[in-house]
C-alpha cells in the first residue's frame, strides 16, 4: 500500500527551479532513500511533504488522500538543520513538541517515559538542553520525532552528531520502526548507511529525478559485466593480449577486473581464463550505491 505519493510536483523559487516534475511513491514499511547532491532539491521536496511550503504544480497524496493539516500528526520529521530551545528543560520541551503533534499531555508523558527508560536517560528529564552534549540533544530530537508513532518518518541526515555506538543504536531503532510498519524517507550523503538500510532509492539532481527504483534492481541495472578474478599464479602476461570483446579494467599481483564488452556469458570468460591460468576466485562486481551516485550525477 502506498503511504505517500508525490505526483508531478514542481516548485520554483525566485532564482531557480527547485523541483521539476518530481513523482515518487513510498510503500508501507519501506525505507526510501532520497539521494542527491547538495542543492539538488531534496530539502525542498521534504518541506513540501511536511506542508512547510506548498508546490506550484502537482500534488501529494497521503494514504490516498490529498495532503492536508490532519496528516501532520501522522508524519514525523527530523530536519537536517535541527535544534532545541536551549533554556528549556528536556522533559518539558519533549512534552511541548509532542503536544504540538497532537498528543495529549498524558499520552505524551507516558510515551516519553517509556522512551527515556529505553535509552536509559531518565536523569535528563529536568536538565536544561544547554547542559546536554550534541549527541545527547540529537537523541532527544530523535525521540521527539518518533514519539507520536507517525505512519511516515522523514529523517534528514539522522546520524550526524552521533558517535559510532550511538549511531548504531539509532540505526537499530530505525529498523525496528520499519519492522512495525512505519514508512521511512531517509535522506543522507552517507552511502554506506543507504546500502545497509534502504529498500528503495530515488536520486534527484538539478531538481529532476534521474533514478528511482528498488535498490537491488538499480544495482542490477548498473552492473557493467565486470568480474573480479583471483588467479593462483602471478604470470598474467596474457591479460595484455585479451581478445577484442574483453577489457582489462584493473590489475594487481594476483588479481584483475575484466569487463565483457559484448553479450557473451561469464562462462565463456571463465573458459577463456582457464585456458591461460588457474583461478582461485571469481565473482561479479556489484556497483555500490556510492558508485552509482557518482556515475549518474556526473553523467547527468
Amino acid at each position: 500500500m502506498k503511504v505517500l505519493e508525490v505526483q508531478s510536483v514542481s516548485k520554483t523559487y525566485i532564482h531557480h527551479k527547485a523541483l521539476d516534475n518530481i513523482s515518487l511513491s513510498v510503500q508501507e514499511g519501506q525505507i526510501f532513500g532520497l539521494l542527491g547532491p547538495n542543492g539538488a532539491g531534496k530539502t525542498s521536496l521534504i518541506r513540501i511533504i511536511n506542508q512547510i511550503t506548498i508546490p506550484d504544480e502537482g500534488r501529494v497524496l497521503f494514504n490516498g488522500e490529498p495532503l492536508n493539516h490532519n496528516h501532520i500528526g501522522q508524519i514525523g520529521y527530523l530536519p537536517e538543520e535541527r535544534g532545541l530551545y536551549k533554556k528549556m528543560k528536556v522533559g518539558e520541551q519533549a512534552l511541548y513538541l509532542a503536544q504540538l503533534k497532537g498528543l495529549s499531555e498524558k499520552e505524551a508523558k507516558k510515551a516519553l517515559r517509556s522512551w527515556f527508560e529505553r535509552f536509559d536517560i531518565n536523569t535528563w528529564w529536568d536538565k536544561k538542553v544547554e547542559e546536554l552534549s550534541k549527541g545527547m540533544a540529537q537523541k532527544i530530537q530523535f525521540i521527539t520525532t518518533v514519539l507520536h508513532q507517525p505512519k511516515l518518518l522523514i529523517f534528514d541526515e539522522p546520524f550526524s552528531g552521533f558517535d559510532p555506538i550511538n549511531a548504531n543504536i539509532i540505526k537499530d531503532e530505525i529498523l525496528q520502526l520499519k519492522e512495525n510498519g512505519t514508512s521511512i524517507i531517509f535522506s543522507t550523503h552517507r552511502m554506506e548507511s543507504v546500502e545497509e538500510l534502504c529498500d528503495h532509492i530515488a536520486l534527484i539532481d538539478k531538481s529532476k529525478k534521474i533514478l528511482d527504483g528498488p535498490i537491488n534492481e538499480i544495482k542490477d541495472k548498473y552492473k557493467q559485466q565486470i568480474y573480479k578474478v583471483d588467479f593462483s599464479s602471478s604470470k598474467l602476461g596474457f591479460l595484455d593480449r585479451l581478445p577484442e570483446h574483453l577489457k582489462l579494467v584493473q590489475q594487481n599481483a594476483h588479481k584483475a577486473e575484466i569487463q565483457i564488452l559484448n553479450d557473451s556469458s561469464a562462462t565463456d570468460l571463465i573458459r577463456f581464463l582457464l585456458d591461460h591460468s588457474d583461478i582461485k576466485g571469481f565473482e561479479e562486481k556489484i556497483p555500490t550505491v556510492n558508485e552509482i551516485f557518482i556515475r549518474t550525477v556526473q553523467g547527468n
Partner: peptide, 18 residues
C-alpha cells in the same frame, strides 16, 4: 531570533503553520 539560531524552528513549523 532564538528559534532561528537554535534551529528548532523547522521542527516546530512541521507541526504548526509559521
Amino acid at each position: 531570533m532564538e528559534e532561528k539560531t537554535s534551529r528548532i524552528v523547522e521542527i516546530i513549523i512541521s507541526s504548526v503553520k509559521p
